[in-house]
Amino acid sequence: MSSEPFGGRLAAAMGERGQLCAGIDPHPGLLASWGLADDVDGLRAFSLTALEGFAPVVAAVKPQVALFERHGSAGIAALEELLAAARAADVLTIADAKRGDIGSTMAAYADAWLRDGSPLAADAVTLSPYLGFESLRPALELAESTGRGVFVLGLTSNPEGASVQHVGGDRSVAKGIVDAVRAENAAAADRGRAEGALGHTGLVVGATVGEALGLLGLDLGTTGAPILAPGFGAQGATAEDLRSLFGSAWPQVLATSSRGLLVAGPDASVLRAAAERARDGLA
């Protein structure tokens, strides 16, 4: 793994290729629309074609782990192949696994997604902090030591999320997560491990959370966190919406589009053109 921390590598990729992350989400409906069977062969063809189209023009790709897991061990093998191919193509990977547990189980999840030499190792992984932020400590520490990153669920746009994340008003659960991420990146900077403007501990903030950021008093610009913002494109958020929502934190934002790009398949060159249009719209 590169000795350069994840935040520095992501900032360089965003500077070179823009602020778009392309999701690789092999939904059964998308497989069918590409003329592929809903099996491992279809999964493999879908994911590698998507990578071929996206890799040259996006800052990162984000495979949705659940859609590989549904095919069992052969699906996980296809995910391993995709991650290896992405490394060879020199594009960052974010495994959208949303892992979260305690103790030795959390350490095992960290080992799977963040350890050097693991066949599932990605450049970053998404994590759920709702067993307590400190339950993520094994992943936070391993990510820092291997030059990888994590994206912690902070404020999501699904309707059910508010029942947990908004609780507490000006001392909301979401604010506690954001504050913990800020402290994590500050501590890493003090250790000399977080180079550049972005730390290794990121946040997931939905692109369609609307007024919630302001209502909950969340200051993302001071967190030093890369911000993964799903919801751009097919889920309704425009580039203008993103700039308005994130304000001064906009340079930290990696906007994610999945279905909005993947519907352009199955031709890799057409996928690439769709990603270029989306990326250029964010500039």
Rank of each mutant, 00 (worst) to 15 (best):
D38E: 14
D39W: 09
D39K: 11
D39Q: 10
V40E: 11
V40Y: 01
V40G: 02
D41H: 14
D41L: 13
G42V: 06
G42R: 07
L43I: 00
A45C: 13
F46N: 03
S47V: 07
S47C: 14
T49S: 14
T49H: 09
A50S: 11
A50N: 00
A50V: 01
A50W: 00
A50T: 04
L51K: 10
L51P: 09
L51S: 10
L51G: 04
E52S: 15
E52K: 15
E52G: 14
G53K: 08
G53P: 13
G53W: 04
F54A: 13
F54R: 12
F54V: 10
A55K: 04
A55G: 13
A55Q: 13
A55N: 10
P56L: 14
P56K: 12
V57D: 13
V57S: 12
V58D: 01
V58T: 12
A59K: 04
A59D: 06
A59E: 09
A59P: 03
A60K: 01
A60T: 02
V61R: 06
V61C: 06
V61I: 15
V61L: 12
V61Y: 08
K62A: 05
P63L: 06
P63S: 06
P63Q: 06
P63I: 03
P63K: 03
Q64E: 15
Q64R: 02
Q64C: 03
V65Q: 01
V65K: 02
V65C: 05
A66P: 09
A66N: 03
A66M: 04
A66Y: 00
A66C: 06
A66D: 04
A66H: 03
L67S: 02
L67C: 05
L67F: 15
L67H: 15
L67K: 03
